[in-house]
Simulated scan of single mutants.
Amino acid sequence: MKEVSVLLTPIKLDVGKYVVSLTKKGKDLYKVDGKNIYIETKYLYEYATGEKVVLKIESTYGYSKGKVIF
């Protein structure tokens, strides 16, 4: 049995653009540096270590909620 290290729960972010620093933690998983917030992506292969990005939240519901712009 494997121990759970991170449990993802959805949070609601307001629509808008945010400048954040991301670090890649796994396949399709990034952590917002300095916060207890993880971003689950799909087909994002950028290797980021403390990289400043724009997190663009376009919707608060649905399958796709926004974009990460490197």
Rank of each mutant, 00 (worst) to 15 (best):
I11H: 06
T23G: 10
Y43G: 08
T23P: 08
K65W: 07
G34F: 13
S5Y: 12
I57C: 03
Y63E: 15
Y47C: 10
I69V: 13
V15I: 14
V20D: 09
V54A: 09
N36G: 14
Y61L: 07
V32L: 02
L44D: 11
G50I: 09
Y47H: 13
Y18Q: 05
K25C: 08
T41P: 03
V15T: 03
V6S: 00
I11S: 04
E46F: 14
E58C: 10
K56V: 05
V4K: 06
V19E: 13
Y63V: 10
S64E: 14
S64M: 08
G26A: 12
K2P: 12
V6R: 09
L8S: 04
Y18I: 06
Y43H: 07
G66Y: 09
Y45T: 09
K27G: 13
D33F: 00
E51A: 14
A48S: 11
V15S: 02
E46W: 14
Y43R: 12
K2D: 05
K56F: 09
G16F: 02
T60V: 11
L44P: 02
Y43Q: 11
L44S: 07
V15N: 08
G62T: 03
K24V: 04
K25H: 05
E58A: 11
L7Q: 11
E51R: 15
G26Q: 01
E40R: 14
K42Y: 13
I11E: 00
S21K: 14
S21C: 01
S64D: 10
K17N: 15
K17H: 06
T41R: 04
F70M: 08
K24Q: 15
F70T: 08
E40P: 08
Y30M: 10
K42E: 15
I57S: 01
V54N: 12
D33L: 03
K52I: 03
V54E: 12
L8V: 00
Y61H: 13
V32S: 01
D33T: 00
G50T: 07
